[in-house]
């Protein structure tokens, strides 16, 4: 979908939320839902940051690390990609305390989602690095660059452009997965919705608002990533033409 259509959808979603919020039957739910949305956004942002760090570290460890580190990174990626996000969340929340490590629910949420998406992200990073043309590596070697220099100056800036669209998808996945944290007692948007639904049975207004809010948040991420991609590849095209 074109960026214009996406912006149009975002504006429509926001206008509909605004219009609904003026109605009496919807208005009562707004403060609670917005409160939940703030927590959702916090978890999504912190989780995304952790995912980026883990994704890059795991990819580099798997590609260039010494054997034990490589092995560790592979186990991490396989475990977090192979099991369900909800299982990971529950495991960290219920089982980890039995080993003497008790984390609060917020920390568990950020950790579980960040580690989960980071595992997928490491494959994205790996694929993007491998997609950089061989000649670039060879030229860097010919110029007598060290491996960190090569990565930092030549390979990663080019791989970065290829990474943007798949990372955008992962951020959306992460944003949607934050709904799971409602099941470990955090009062995010999904939790507030559930709670209000149980108290008032006004299912349709509550869930309509909640779906629209998630839609708006996802669209903001999608549009942001599109703009970033456009900017990043602009530089690359200019470089090529020169």
């Amino acid at each position: 979908m074109g960026i214009r259509t996406l912006v149009a959808m975002l504006v429509t979603a926001l206008v509909v939320i605004g219009a609904l919020a003026t109605q009496e039957s919807y208005k009562v739910f707004m403060p609670g839902l917005l409160q939940g949305a703030v927590l959702t956004i916090e978890i999504a942002i912190l989780g995304s940051l952790l995912a980026i760090v883990m994704g890059v570290l795991a990819a580099l460890a798997r590609m260039y690390g010494p054997a034990p580190l490589r092995w560790l990174a592979t186990v991490y990626v396989e475990i977090f990609r192979g099991t369900s996000a909800l299982v990971q969340l529950f495991w960290l929340f219920f089982v980890l305390p039995q080993f003497g490590v008790t984390l609060n629910a917020f920390l568990v949420a950020v950790l579980a989602l960040g580690l989960n998406v980071g595992a997928y992200g490491s494959e994205v990073v790996r694929g993007a690095i491998q997609s950089v043309a061989r000649g670039q590596w060879e030229a860097s070697t010919a110029l007598n660059m060290s491996r960190p220099q090569m990565l930092r100056r030549i390979i990663l800036p080019q791989a970065f452009v290829a990474m943007i669209p798949p990372w955008g998808n992962l951020f959306i996945e992460l944003l949607k997965s934050t709904a799971l944290v409602s099941l470990i007692t955090l009062s995010d948007l999904a939790f507030k919705a559930q709670q209000m639904n149980q108290n008032t049975f006004k299912t349709i207004p509550i869930f309509t608002l909640v779906l629209l809010m998630y839609l708006a948040m996802s669209l903001v991420v999608t549009i942001g990533m599109r703009l970033l991609e456009r900017r990043a590849s602009l530089g690359l095209a200019r470089g090529k033409a020169a």
């Binding site: 709904a179 999904a190 869930f207 779906l211 998630y214």
Partner: peptide, 19 residues
């Protein structure tokens, strides 16, 4: 498709179950 893909599955499950 965009609407379905942009909102969490958990919310959709609740929605269908309660609506």
């Amino acid at each position: 498709v965009e609407l379905i893909r942009s909102t969490p599955l958990l919310i959709q499950i609740f929605f269908l179950y309660f609506v």
